[in-house]
Computed example of a mutant assay.
Amino acid sequence: MVMLPMLVLLGFLDLVSSRVRCAPVQACDPRQRRDAGGRGGVYEHLGGAPRRRKLYCATKYHLQIHSNGKIDGSLEEDNPFSIMEITAVDVGVVAIKGLFSGRYLAMNDKGRLYASEVFNRECEFVERIHELGYNTYASRHHSTEQPLPPGGGSSGKRRASVKRQWYVSINGKGRPRRGFKTRSTDKASLFLPRVLGNKDHEMVRRLRDSQSAHHHAHHRGERRRRRHRARKGRGRRPDD
């Protein structure tokens, strides 16, 4: 008889832990979130490793994430700030990170796109495949509540409402549009994830080489400084 309440309690705790999400201002790596089985690391059942793509908008611009936090579009085919890493953080939900800027695409509660230095809840976007073959990316946490017209499915006194989603959008001038002004059928909200070309792969290789060289140079400098401090320590004489 004692075992039954214990099993119920353990099942409830497991359900709660599996629904944990990042707090509104909490920074976390999307690939370090726990999956449905409670395991840390990548979402193995969603493919795990990030996809490297260039998001080509139907307005003929590539989405860019700059190091200074700016979001815009580029007509250039070989722009390094257009190379993205798209990582699944939940079923149908992704995080989009600029590979060269190291920043995440995000949308705030005013509908403005910005580049965040750390991953947070505003960096989560619902990815959907449009009927024309393009993808749309809607903010997971920000949208507009719109009341249904009278007789639109609510029989009570309280009128029902629907959520109008806010989409990532680049207009015909290469500028981002505010989320509440977008629709899923707008050309500015439709993106084609393009695989990287040979020049893109070459830029990625050079980036990795430069990062590796910087890492090794930093460690060599640290070792030299430690040896210098050790020699100075041995050269000192204790006070008489």
Rank of each mutant, 00 (worst) to 15 (best):
M84Q: 10
M84A: 10
M84N: 06
E85K: 12
E85R: 13
I86Y: 01
T87P: 07
T87R: 09
T87I: 06
A88R: 15
A88E: 11
A88F: 11
A88W: 12
V89D: 06
V89P: 00
V89Y: 07
V89M: 09
D90M: 04
D90N: 10
D90H: 03
D90T: 01
V91I: 13
V91M: 10
V91C: 09
V91D: 12
V91N: 13
V91T: 14
G92A: 11
G92Q: 06
G92W: 07
G92M: 02
V93P: 06
V93L: 11
V94D: 04
V94F: 02
V94S: 04
V94A: 00
V94H: 03
V94N: 01
V94L: 06
A95P: 03
A95R: 10
A95I: 02
A95D: 10
A95L: 09
I96V: 14
I96H: 03
K97T: 04
K97V: 02
K97I: 00
K97M: 08
G98L: 05
G98P: 05
G98H: 06
L99W: 05
L99T: 12
L99P: 00
L99Y: 08
S101N: 09
S101M: 03
S101T: 09
S101D: 04
S101I: 07
S101W: 03
G102E: 07
G102L: 10
G102Y: 05
G102H: 08
G102I: 04
G102C: 05
G102N: 09
R103P: 01
R103E: 04
R103M: 05
R103L: 12
Y104A: 03
Y104M: 02
Y104N: 06
Y104S: 01
Y104C: 03
A106I: 03
A106S: 14
A106E: 01
M107E: 02
M107W: 03
N108T: 01
N108Q: 07
D109W: 12
D109Q: 15
D109A: 14
D109Y: 13
D109S: 15
D109C: 15
K110H: 15
K110S: 15
G111M: 05
G111A: 07
G111S: 08
G111C: 08
G111R: 10
G111H: 08
R112G: 11
R112E: 15
R112P: 01
R112I: 11
L113D: 03
L113M: 13
L113H: 06
Y114W: 11
Y114P: 00
A115K: 07
A115F: 01
A115W: 01
A115M: 07
A115Q: 08
A115E: 04
S116C: 10
S116K: 11
S116M: 02
S116V: 07
S116L: 02
S116N: 12
S116Q: 08
S116P: 05
E117A: 14
E117P: 07
E117T: 13
E117C: 12
V118F: 10
F119G: 15
F119V: 00
F119Q: 07
F119S: 13
F119D: 08
F119E: 04
F119N: 11
N120S: 15
N120H: 15
N120C: 15
